[in-house]
């Protein structure tokens, strides 16, 4: 089985993030594999171990994305592809990403493509579905179980806490949700072997694409951090006065009543 994983490098949202001039500052930010993509990598490895074949991890990014790809290789993926857009593209959106991936998959015979449900940075959840549409293959998002038997694919999908059971066929694209599996730690021998595994680097030129072909359809106007949480207020006085004050505050100040 030819298994592909779409992987994105994101900044670690648990670390401190600085924004200046509507841009997230790269300096000092910690970069990680998008956590939902880790489920995709883990699932890809498990499916390969069960059904045979090869796992290829694909990312669109810059030179530094190699680190995340190597981590996926250390977890057990077989090959990695870095589509480096650092020199060619100034900006991009989901359209750009899907368009580049479409060109990449044009000559590939993928049986199974896995992606994260969303990336924790921009959380659009669009790239997977857009790519599947472009390739003309079925897709199922937010999956929590994947069973493949021949060409038949049985999937459990998370629908706001309930489970939807879906049957489809290969080739298929799925996006992975928490609960699908428990991503492994890359083992030490895995890390040491990862540097010997093939990592191919492409530019959009290699995919016969121009900057114009992948021009974003959206424009980011501003990026800002949520307002800092303000200190709470302790009401004082007699109990019934406090209740009256609370109701009035809820009504007039925070307007929730």
């Amino acid at each position: 089985m030819n298994i592909y994983v779409l992987l994105k490098k994101t900044f670690d949202t648990e670390e401190k993030i600085n924004v200046s001039h509507g841009q997230i500052e790269d300096d000092g930010a910690e970069f990680i594999i998008n956590p939902y993509d880790e489920y995709a990598v883990e699932e890809a490895i498990n499916q390969r171990d069960e059904h045979g074949g090869e796992v290829t991890v694909v990312t669109i990014g810059d030179e530094d994305s190699e680190k995340q790809l190597r981590t996926a290789l250390a977890m057990g993926a077989d090959k990695a592809v870095l589509i480096n857009t650092e020199d060619d593209l100034e900006s991009g959106d989901q359209y750009t990403t899907a368009k580049i991936l479409e060109a990449f998959f044009e000559d590939k015979e993928a049986d199974l493509i896995l992606a994260g449900n969303v990336a924790i940075d921009e959380a659009s959840g669009q790239v997977g579905p857009r790519l599947a549409e472009a390739l003309g293959i079925p897709y199922v998002t937010t999956i929590t179980s994947l069973k493949i038997d021949g060409e038949v694919v049985n999937i459990e999908k998370d629908v706001e806490g309930d489970v939807e059971i879906i049957e489809t066929s290969l080739p298929v694209l799925v996006t992975c949700q928490q609960g699908l599996n428990e991503p492994r730690y890359p083992s030490l021998p895995g890390i040491m072997k990862a540097k010997k595994k093939p990592l191919e680097e492409l530019e959009i030129d290699d995919l016969d694409l121009d900057e114009d072909d992948v021009e974003p359809k959206t424009k980011t106007i501003d990026i800002f951090l949520p307002p800092e949480k303000e200190a709470g207020r302790v009401l004082e006085g007699e109990l019934n006065e406090q209740v009256v004050e609370l109701v009035s505050l809820l009504k007039n100040e925070s307007k929730v009543l």
Partner: peptide
Amino acid sequence: SKEQLMIKKMVKDFA
């Protein structure tokens, strides 16, 4: 090196 960074990160996550 990349391997050293990966080892550090993996052990940190595990720890």
